[in-house]
Amino acid sequence: MNDPLPKKRSITVMVGLPHLAAGKLLERARRLEQPVLISANALSRWSKKRGWREWAGWRISALDNAASLQSLSLDSAGFSAMVTYGGYPWTLDDYIGLAAAYPFHWWASLDYCVEHQVAGDRDEVLDRISRTIRANIECRLRAEDQGILANFMPVIQGRLPFDYERCADALSGTIERAGLVGVGSMCRRPIHGPEGLMAVVDHLDRVLPPRVRLHLFGVKGEAIPYLTVFAHRIASIDSQAYGVAARNEARHGGRLKSDAIVADHMERWVHAQHARLHQPRRQLPVQAPATEPARVDDPWEAAIVEARQQIRELIESGDLDHDETTAPWIEQWAADIYRERMTA
């Protein structure tokens, strides 16, 4: 990822696969010669030995089936983990072990997504950005120990465009070394608007060093004709959206969703995305930039804001664990700040 970038740049379409089991789906991916992205969740083993479903390690043997793919990259499955399990069921060290088990083209940092389904308010968004910053730092440190830093891809998070800038600034050295950064919380984002996909990409294009390129996770196909204007900045996109169409076809036909059905939809999806890459570029509409929330004047509410910020800084510095729950401490923390200000 440190090689000089070519002058003529294009956006690579990566295919997200739901598994790496030998069969028609994997064979079709080989034949299409597309780079593949696999989620850590798709490589997980589960057990009910203790009466409930719990994570039981990785299915490392499945990676043997990927040998003849054009390339294979690894995603940490942040959104799926948060929505399905309420958090990562595996530890950071578990994930690093998986990243070290195969020569991935790149493997993404653990991150904490901020989609509305996961982060309901502004404070939760900011908390999760701080956790993402620390998780990136921890992944990088362990990658150095394991000798897999060369294919490590940092990931930035945010709700508003300048959220991503703040995250990138905190990881600037790591991002510049990698030359490629993943942009999370993209898949459920609208294309346009002050919080839209295009606003985020446009802002990052303005603030990141010229040689740094982006991987956009889970981008909608209809966004591609707008994204091509940023082909100098966007290295790749991925999606597994074809699986939804395959599920619908199987349900309407009264059949099980087989790998053969999914493979047909995947092939049609790949051809459709490449056709979109060659459509005329669409004009980015003029839109008002997103703004920072207004300053809080109420002394107690201001103390709450300050307490949250101090906790986030401790998470980013590593003095608090990035996955540690901080909510029970906030009011007491804020009370101390409030008293100090009132008696100053």
Rank of each mutant, 00 (worst) to 15 (best):
S47W: 01
K48P: 01
K49V: 11
G51C: 07
G51P: 08
W52R: 12
R53Y: 09
E54P: 02
W55H: 01
A56K: 06
G57C: 12
G57K: 03
W58I: 11
W58D: 09
I60V: 13
S61C: 14
S61R: 03
A62I: 07
D64Y: 03
N65D: 12
A66M: 11
A66V: 07
A67G: 10
L69D: 07
Q70D: 11
S71T: 10
S71R: 15
L72F: 09
L72P: 00
D75I: 12
D75G: 12
D75C: 12
S76P: 09
A77V: 02
A77Y: 08
G78H: 06
F79E: 00
F79Q: 03
A81F: 09
A81G: 01
A81C: 14
A81E: 04
M82V: 11
M82I: 01
T84D: 09
T84S: 10
G86C: 06
G86H: 07
G87C: 11
G87T: 09
Y88F: 14
P89Q: 08
P89W: 04
W90Q: 03
W90L: 03
T91Q: 08
T91E: 02
D94F: 05
Y95D: 01
I96F: 02
I96E: 07
G97F: 08
L98Y: 06
A99P: 05
A100V: 01
A101Q: 06
Y102V: 03
P103N: 09
F104I: 02
F104Q: 10
H105S: 13
W107Q: 04
A108G: 12
A108N: 15
A108L: 15
S109D: 02
L110R: 10
D111P: 08
Y112K: 11
V114I: 11
E115K: 00
E115W: 15
Q117R: 05
Q117P: 01
A119Q: 12
A119I: 10
G120K: 13
G120H: 13
G120E: 10
D121E: 14
D123A: 14
E124H: 08
E124L: 14
E124Q: 11
E124T: 14
V125F: 06
V125C: 10
L126P: 00
I129N: 07
S130Y: 06
T132S: 07
R134F: 15
R134M: 13
R134E: 05
I137S: 14
E138G: 03
E138S: 09
C139V: 08
C139I: 12
C139S: 05
L141W: 13
L141A: 14
A143T: 01
A143S: 06
D145W: 00
Q146D: 02
Q146A: 15
G147D: 12
L149N: 02
L149S: 05
L149R: 00
L149F: 00
A150Y: 07
A150H: 10
A150C: 05
A150T: 06
F152T: 04
P154W: 06
P154H: 11
V155D: 00
I156S: 07
I156A: 04
Q157F: 09
G158Q: 03
G158V: 03
R159T: 01
R159D: 01
